[in-house]
Design a protein around this nucleic acid. Structure first.
Lengths: 184, 184
DNA sequence: GGTGGGGCTGATACACTGTAACATGGACCG
DNA sequence: CGGTCCATGTTACAGTGTATCAGCCCCACC
């Protein structure tokens, strides 16, 4: 799947952010769209005294436009256009910034990134639900899981600084449709 | 070619007070050593009617010899010797096999692998504890976390097929020693 | 005994992911 | 105007993982 197989034509020159893919339930996200994410990030950067540059904005917009994990090279490709070539390394730098600020998250199991519209801190126990069928991803907080994990870690004498919790499977929407390829 | 590994390797013990990697009590693992892991794997392969070849055995032994995540190229390097050159691709294939059989686990956040002496199924909710200070890794089962996660997923209508739960931080031994910044 | 197939390994090449190092340009400050 | 900091552009390269073809070994089968 690593590849440039499908690119839903999303954006021309201007970055019109139509969000026409709600293939997955996506309830937990609170229903914010790409534009909301970008706006919120811009506000927060002002608050924090950080530069929300065009590159960073565009990278965030590109990630937010898709509700599935995007690789850095995918992002670079989507942002590039006749007249503007965006190198992957630039995307990585923007991604570093956005990740630090909590605007995007890295999905280790996919070497990819997703945008985040929440305002949880870095320490929040996030769970990522990745659908094998539609490729969509959902992010949610799970206090019960978090506290159970905290207790487990404390029992092991381990002091956590960061966590990764990614679940792969089939989302409700795909299961309902029986998209798996068989099943019924 | 790639034999350019600048990464910390070796660092086997060799001093009485090794800040190496048998830091963790490692109780959860049942105290098995590398040999145990290999033996167990051999038995299970026989039971399952699978080939436990020399390559696979050696790869497993190499991984089991270190109690920290090892990259595929690291493994290849360690296994190579005058007279036997092991290509990374071979290691990957062996690793695929070993992972499928549950003898090793992949650590997504590190692009690396660790051996496993447990006999849990693939579905078990494993937690990996990676110490930033000593680089050691511990694996444990956490039923409470697992059940909380199951419930959360069920509530979201998500059907899981695999999970990744990796925690980075500082293990008890390192914290006790205050290894955080000093020492090198 | 010969033969063919399947699984394992060797080897080369390549694709994808990520980082280092250096140069440029703009904003701010003296 | 000159200097510094930050962000970006650019090139090169390291690290991770796969595709592909070829040789080998074991074993069933003839």
């Amino acid at each position: 799947m690593r590849g440039h197989a499908q690119r839903e034509q999303g954006q021309e020159d201007g970055h019109g952010q139509e969000h026409g893919h709600d293939h997955h339930g996506h309830d937990a996200c609170g229903g914010h769209g790409a534009g909301d994410v970008v706006e919120r990030a811009e506000r927060l950067c002002q608050t924090r005294g950080l530069q929300f540059t065009r590159l960073r904005r565009d990278v965030l917009a590109a990630v937010a436009a898709e509700h599935k994990p995007l690789g850095a090279y995918d992002i670079a490709e989507r942002m590039s256009a006749p007249g503007r070539r965006v190198a992957a390394v630039s995307v990585y730098r923007a991604l570093d910034f956005l990740t630090e600020q909590g605007f995007v998250h890295r999905i280790s199991s996919r070497n990819a990134f997703v945008s985040c519209g929440h305002d949880h801190g870095e320490g929040a126990g996030l769970v990522f639900l990745i659908c094998r069928t539609c490729g969509g991803i959902d992010e949610m907080t799970a206090p019960a899981v978090e506290s159970a994990l905290d207790q487990t870690l404390a029992g092991a004498g381990f002091t956590p600084t960061s966590r990764i919790l990614e679940v792969e499977g089939e989302c409700g929407a795909c299961r309902g449709r029986g998209d798996a390829g068989e099943n019924a």
